[in-house]
Amino acid sequence: MSRSGVTPEMLMAFADQEIDRETAEAIERAVRDNPELAETVAAFRTTRRLAREAFGDVLAEPMPERLIRSVLESTPEGARVLPFPPRRLRGAALPLAASIMIVAGLAGYFLGQRAGGVHPSAPGAIAFGDPAAIEALASLPSGGERVVRASGAEATLRVTGSYGVDGGFCRTFTVATAAQSARGLGCKRGPGWSIEAIIADAPAGGDQYRPASGGDEILEGMLDSLGASEPLAAEQERALIESGWKR
């Protein structure tokens, strides 16, 4: 295994892209000449992918309400304001201070890239299930809207803002059926767009649980944790839509 002075750890670091360029080039040469080493590197890549896939379901599972509630209802010690630059969602088209609720059992929140478990009649399900929703997210200017369909229902998806984030871009949107509405966040931080979060708006007069803070604030918090910039200006956004959101 340690032939030509290459240890398994070095091959692993090479597979994980955790080594400097010089060492990487040396290992690349060694791997090219030695099928046994190449096999070891391939095995390290495979185990990484398998481990990731094995936990993909957990990452994509609907978030239990009790966890969200336990965080939102606690008061951080000192309740200090973090030094993030103030940034408001560009939401002139949104109802101000919309009362947002997290609906128990509606599995549309904080899903990863997969659509498993989304309630089929929820507007969130439409956004997750319909490739047209992803297409709308990639191509509509902020303020633009499009009707998308899934499972026989139709919903209006409206893009409300665009942001540069670490490693890509995110866009905020609302999605509404006749019966229900939600707001969400979709990001392109790799090859394609994925829906990162959908939060249902509270139906008027409902007395179900409502977090102290609104869905816009949750989305803002998510944007901040992704390193989001100020909202992109209309002309930047237009150029990005035309270029397919290339950085």
Binding site: F55, V58, L59, A60, E61, M63, L67, I68, V71, L72, S74, P76, V81, L82, P83, F84, P86, F110, G112, A197, S213, E217, I218, E220, G221, M222, D224, S225, L226
Partner: peptide, 23 residues
């Protein structure tokens, strides 16, 4: 208003759950 750290924690919940399931 500044960003509430609670919202950042909520954004981390799926990843926290994955690590918890490993333990």
């Amino acid at each position: 208003m500044g960003t509430d750290v609670r919202h950042q924690i909520i954004a981390l919940l799926p990843r926290l759950r994955a690590f918890a399931r490993a333990l």
